[in-house]
Amino acid sequence: MSIDTLAQEHPGPHDVSHIRKVAMWVFLGSEVLFFGSLITTFLLYRTRIGDGPGAAEIFDIPFTSVSSFILLMSSLTMVMAHHSASRKDWRQMRVWLVATAMLGIVFLSGQVFEFTEFVEEGLTVSTSPFGSSFFVLTGVHGAHVAVGVLLLLATALMSFTGRLRDGEGMNVEIIGLYWHFVDVVWIVIFTVVYLMQV
């Protein structure tokens, strides 16, 4: 990778949308290492189940597949929101933003339900290193989804005031990048943590 391809050699007039997108992609690069550390911990501990239940006994693949599918589809609604925003169709944009947030909330509810089930079946954070690493990895991901839901709802609400109208398309695009990234992380978690362990 040559230096020239890393950035244009002659930066033009400062374009705020460009500046923000660079910042967001830089941040997401960092998040890759963040989730990488958590997934590594899980992979190291996936078979260290002590006296507690293991992955094959406890995972409910059909249930998790459905909730994974829901999160995946939220990326579709998110990109539709961005599309509406770029056409300055604020009403449609709000509809898609709220739809995305709702799908996120459904996913989070599924996670809460799943966690409760697991605890009832005898897997907690202190049962085994497997339990610790599973709950912390998926929990931290859930926290990212929750932050995303807050951002989506806040943007939808603020768009009513009209104060951020000029920057709206930009905000939706940046939040979209974050949201898609959180979805992409779940794509990896669903495969590596769930499907490959049963």
């Binding site: 460009h18 690069g29 290492l33 990326s75 990109v79």
Partner: peptide, 25 residues
Amino acid sequence: VVGYFMHLKYEQRIYRNLFLMGIIA
């Protein structure tokens, strides 16, 4: 998802390169 929903395929290479560093590391 990264290429189409996040538009990485259509955008300036700088975004792709910044993200790739983490993905490769």
